[in-house]
Design a protein around this nucleic acid. Structure first.
Length: 274
DNA sequence: AAGGTTACCTGCCCGC
DNA sequence: TGCGGGCAGGTAACCT
């Protein structure tokens, strides 16, 4: 499901419903995720107050009044829902954070690529999941000089480079194609073949594409839903993703599709020349 | 050694 | 109607 915009939309949806609430307990219905759900989760976190929900890359960080926090990745198909305790257990519901009779946080994940960990609040950034992460694309840390400096040394395709979380976090398969279309860069061009000025444009288009998607409530392809069950609307704004064979909105050329790094990639051959 | 490929899962959609 | 194949938004361990 989620790239950075979808995770951010989930964070914004969960925050007003959950922050300030006290966690009564955690029930683990099916611990089988990408990494097994830590059995100590309930013992460690129960009784503590949720102070804030942060995002780093595609991870959500649940900060409690406690020396630990929960770091949560939703994988490809993870979903969070806030429901009353009486609501039935959905298919593929893995675990449940029980805050009150009226507020429980359910996590379901059919493909089980998601995972959750208990990290020490004082040095969670040193954890292997975070230690080598690149800058947040919506922050000032994401600068075209930085992108240029790293990518100009690399022979890999520019699409695989911007999807590499060591270089910049949060850009997944959809928004990589969309950002490159907006910039007019062919996805398979090697990083080292691009000019410094192109990195300047790419940086600003990545930023704008992600922000536009957040503003639209994310993209609902497959089954992404916001916490309240509403879909995201950014998929209506896709310029190239999923549009192979259709005319480019800008020049009417036919959108093409190829594979890069095993991932479907979409581009306009005339707006994004080799 | 960098960069491409595969595996991890289930669900869904398509063609036969 | 049913079955098999291919594909899906992420990540990391493998090969080469």
């Amino acid at each position: 499901m989620p790239e950075l915009p979808e995770v951010e939309v989930v964070r914004q949806g969960l925050s007003p419903r959950l922050i300030g609430q006290y966690l009564q307990d955690i029930s683990i219905h099916n611990p089988s995720l990408r990494y097994p759900v830590p059995p100590i989760l309930n013992n460690i976190m129960s009784g503590h107050q949720l102070m804030d929900i942060h995002r780093r890359g595609k991870y959500l960080l649940f900060e409690f009044d406690h020396e630990h926090l929960l770091a949560w990745h939703m994988g490809m198909s993870g979903q969070f829902h806030v429901l009353p305790a009486s609501a039935p257990t959905a298919k593929h519901e893995h675990l449940r954070l029980n805050f009150s009779e009226t507020v429980t946080l359910r996590y379901r994940d059919p493909r089980r690529f998601g995972y959750v960990g208990v990290l020490e609040k004082s040095d969670w950034q040193q954890h292997p999941w975070f230690i080598n992460m690149g800058p947040e694309p919506l922050s000032d840390d994401f600068h075209h000089d930085h992108l240029h400096e790293i990518c100009t040394l690399k022979g890999a395709s520019i699409k695989s480079l911007i999807m590499n979380a060591h270089i910049v976090v949060g850009v997944g398969n959809i928004y990589a194609s969309e950002s490159l279309f907006r910039t007019g860069i062919h996805p398979s061009i090697p990083g080292k073949s691009l000019a410094k000025e192109q990195y300047q444009h790419l940086t600003s288009h990545i930023r704008q594409t992600l922000q536009d998607a957040i503003d639209a409530g994310g993209s609902s392809i497959s089954d992404f839903v916001q916490v309240d069950g509403k879909p995201g609307y950014f998929s209506h704004n896709f310029q190239v993703y999923g549009r192979s064979g259709d005319p480019c909105y800008r020049c009417r050329s036919t959108i093409e599709q190829c594979k890069l790094g095993g991932r479907s990639t979409f581009y306009c051959p005339s707006c994004q020349p080799i």
